[in-house]
Design a protein around this nucleic acid. Sequence first.
DNA 1: TATAATAAAAGTCAAGGAAAGTCAAAAGGT
DNA 2: ACCTTTTGACTTTCCTTGACTTTTATTATA
Lengths: 166, 166
Amino acid sequence: MMIRSLVEEIENYLKELLAQSPHGWIEVQRKDLAEKFACVPSQITYVLNTRFNLKCGYFVESRRGGRGYIRIWKIDSCFRGLFPEDAIPGDYLGLLHTLVQKGFLTEREAFLLNLVFRVIESKVHGEFGSFLNRQIFREVLTSLGFLRNLEEGTTGSQARLPDRKG
Amino acid sequence: MMIRSLVEEIENYLKELLAQSPHGWIEVQRKDLAEKFACVPSQITYVLNTRFNLKCGYFVESRRGGRGYIRIWKIDSCFRGLFPEDAIPGDYLGLLHTLVQKGFLTEREAFLLNLVFRVIESKVHGEFGSFLNRQIFREVLTSLGFLRNLEEGTTGSQARLPDRKG
DNA sequence: TATAATAAAAGTCAAGGAAAGTCAAAAGGT
DNA sequence: ACCTTTTGACTTTCCTTGACTTTTATTATA
């Protein structure tokens, strides 16, 4: 993997640790990291703020003082299990049409999602493919509540792309 | 080859680089190019805007600040199914941001796509997961180029969902 | 034992520098 | 004349650094 900057180097290192962690979270020390990467400790804070914030799908817990620590959690999917397994049948096109009709999605949004479903259909055969599509559709549905409140340009909604910079 | 202007000279140079790249993308620095061709940096921006836009079949991603870069992709999605592992570097968040910033996607659209990438990332581990995401991203890019062409042509046509069958 | 001092973390914030972006004016070409 | 290219002053974004602050645990002291 090509490393572009110190920030990314540290980011990759932490994500690697996370990927290898069986718990879904890791614990590190800012001081140690700073030492390992030969940088100022606040650099670590910067990485945490810009790459591991809630919007990016991570949650950071920390403690100062002696025995201080930084714990990083990967938020897998906050909405897991909201829907019964086969609540959503395979005909996404129809569902997308309905959502457009009801004003939950724009034509373009539905177009893009349909594109996604088709790619997965064509590349992931069998049961797993439809499982994936179901998962995605589920996530879309659960975020529709947020989406609905997001008129173009409004601020403060959760239905936004996470910032690259925190 | 007959060179008519600096723009074309730079254009040719970049296309040559692209042709020789095994990945279908290259990474350069505006500052370096400007130096190499003895021109002001904004000349490079001009070349990028006029010769390497989506309509021309290219996609440009960039980052300002320290260790900034410019990455140029040739979109030739058709039938180029298999890519080396690192064909599309890392996180799609940056790419989605770029597309939003350039006005190709709305915040909502990017949000939805990011959702998709995250679901796939979490459900399809390893090589195949990133392969899938790459496929989807390429499809999105090509259809965006397609969309733009449509918008310039007739009818204020947007991306349309195929009609429901039956 | 209760409190005060000390040390060892992590947090904050702003300055500084290194990129790329913007925009409009000037220059060239047809 | 019009459209494309070239230029440069100014802006924005992002990374890095360091001085200073706050929080927590440990140790010393009354």
